[in-house]
Amino acid sequence: MLRDGAVHVSAVAGARTRHLDALVVESGRGLGGRAVLETRPRLALDYRTAKGITHDYDRMVLGEGIATLFAVPVIVSGTPRAVLYCGSWGQAPLAEPAARPAFAIADDVAAELRVRDEVERRLARVHAAPRATALPAAAQEQLREAYAHLRRITAGVQDATLRQRLNELEKRLATMAASASEIDVEAALSPRETDVLACAALGSTNAEIAVALGLKETTVKSYLSSAMAKLDATTRHSAVAKARRAGILP
């Protein structure tokens, strides 16, 4: 990842030695630094004799025994944010089919970073905004739709840190529509029970909820029944109302 203008090697897979651990590559230096500076992939088929790059990091790279090195910058909104290195111990040509997986991984990382940036931006806006005692009906509906959509996104995120940040945002959104005096219900719903109830709050049928969350309709019914029992509610509508008073749902 890039921090303070330098590439900090944060993960190494398949290495034979520890020469690359905690390596920091300055912008414009070495192969990765050139990739960052030029915002394009850089390849050294024979790293030891490669021209056009500085050899500040030969002790680490050659110490690992790397002969061919490929550096792909991860670009987000035109700005390099990380570098993906691919190295081999034997000198070998790198054709497009072999490079394609590296480009795909770099694209995936860029997409993940864009999500992180958006989460951070929204969290900053939410934390900076004053707590409202009441929202107009249209704004409340938009908030509830955004909350349900965010729950669906969170369910598919594997990164634990990002999930935690998303959960922070969800909790903040859930309490934005309620005043402090309204939060008087105690219930511990599971993540999936909350997901299902958030969709039910938008008026979705069990079949529609099943499609939205990738569940079976019978599973949706089971989650709804469990949530209703925990909230001491006899209908889904009363369960939604109690969940809103508890600050579980917006």
Rank of each mutant, 00 (worst) to 15 (best):
M1H: 14
R3E: 15
D4Q: 11
V9L: 14
V9Q: 05
A11W: 07
A13G: 01
R16Q: 13
R18I: 04
L20F: 07
L20K: 10
D21L: 13
A22T: 12
L23K: 04
V24D: 06
S27C: 15
V36C: 08
L37M: 14
E38C: 04
R40F: 01
P41S: 07
L43A: 02
A44P: 02
L45P: 00
L45D: 01
R48M: 03
H55Q: 10
L62R: 08
E64H: 11
P73K: 00
I75F: 03
G78W: 10
C86N: 02
S88L: 04
S88V: 03
S88M: 04
W89G: 11
L94C: 02
E96T: 00
E96V: 02
A98C: 01
A99L: 14
R100A: 15
P101H: 14
A106N: 00
D107R: 13
D107T: 15
D108P: 00
V109A: 07
V109R: 00
V109K: 00
V115M: 09
D117Q: 14
V119F: 05
R122C: 14
R122P: 05
L123M: 13
H127K: 07
H127D: 13
H127C: 05
A128P: 02
A129G: 03
L135K: 08
L135P: 09
Q142D: 12
R144Y: 05
H149K: 13
I153A: 02
A155E: 08
A155H: 13
G156Y: 02
V157N: 03
V157R: 01
T161L: 05
L162M: 09
L162Q: 08
Q164N: 08
N167T: 11
E168Q: 05
K171N: 15
T175E: 12
A177Y: 04
E186T: 13
E186Y: 14
A188Q: 09
T194F: 08
A201S: 15
L202W: 12
L202S: 10
G203S: 07
G203R: 11
V211P: 01
A212W: 05
E217S: 03
E217M: 08
V220C: 04
Y223C: 12
S226V: 08
L231Y: 10
L231S: 08
A233Q: 07
H237P: 00
V240G: 05
A243Y: 13
R244F: 04
R245T: 05
L249K: 10
L249S: 08
P250Q: 03
